[in-house]
Amino acid sequence: MEEIHLVSEALKFMVLGMIVVFIFLVVLVQLMKVQAKLVGKYFPEKKPVTKPTVQATDEKARTAAIIAAITEFNKNKS
């Protein structure tokens, strides 16, 4: 086997490697853009129906009512 010049081999690896990495990522970027467009067109995300905050206060009111009822019940028991 003939003597390999390490540095020049390494430089070749570098050129090949960086080219492949960049081609891979550039194509990936394009695919991501296309994908975003297609998905946006055919599967638009449904706006999640956000219930107004009344529900939260409802919940709080209910909790308060339950607590009150339990306290009353315990009081009557004793």
């Binding site: 390490l6 540095v7 081999e9 390494a10 430089l11 690896f13 570098m14 490697g17 960086m18």
Partner: peptide, 10 residues
């Protein structure tokens, strides 16, 4: 990665 590959070779 590739820069240090050259560095290691050197």
């Amino acid at each position: 990665i590739f820069g240090s590959l050259v560095g290691a070779a050197a």
